[in-house]
């Protein structure tokens, strides 16, 4: 019985903290600002896709802008920027593995591709 009481008490506490966090009148302004940034980046991406810029430069621009877009979505829409920094690290750090995975698989793909090319010669 006692245990139950304390449990519900702490859960209530957590919700209370959450509500207190957002006691500013409203974040509407920031939300729309984020929307215009995301839309602007997307329009810019589609726009430069039709230019005759070098392919490599285009590719890295797109990848860079995708990361900028995910920063705004995760930071502002998903509110990670306003969570505790500890928590943001818990969420973001595992993606170091993905960076390693990208390097590994792209190298592997290129290598197998070049091997197959050699065999055709």
């Amino acid at each position: 019985m006692e245990d139950n009481k304390t449990h519900s008490h702490t859960t209530h506490d957590v919700h209370h903290m959450n509500v207190d966090d957002h006691h500013q009148p409203s974040n509407t302004k920031q939300i729309w600002k984020t929307f215009w940034i995301l839309l602007g980046i997307t329009v810019f991406e589609v726009g430069i896709a039709f230019t005759s810029l070098p392919k490599g430069l285009l590719k890295w621009t797109f990848i860079g802008l995708t990361i900028v877009k995910s920063y705004y979505i995760v930071g502002y829409f998903m509110h990670l920027k306003h969570e505790k920094p500890h928590f943001a690290w818990v969420i973001l750090l595992p993606f170091v593995l993905i960076i390693y995975f990208i390097a590994m698989l792209i190298c592997e793909g290129n290598y197998i591709g070049s091997l197959a090319g050699e065999m055709l010669k």
Binding site: H15, M17, N18, E83, F87
Partner: peptide, 14 residues
């Protein structure tokens, strides 16, 4: 206290 100042439901969604 909750170290992340977050309910378990929200944390598990993350």
């Amino acid at each position: 206290r909750s170290p992340f100042a977050m309910s378990w439901g929200k944390m598990y969604m993350w």
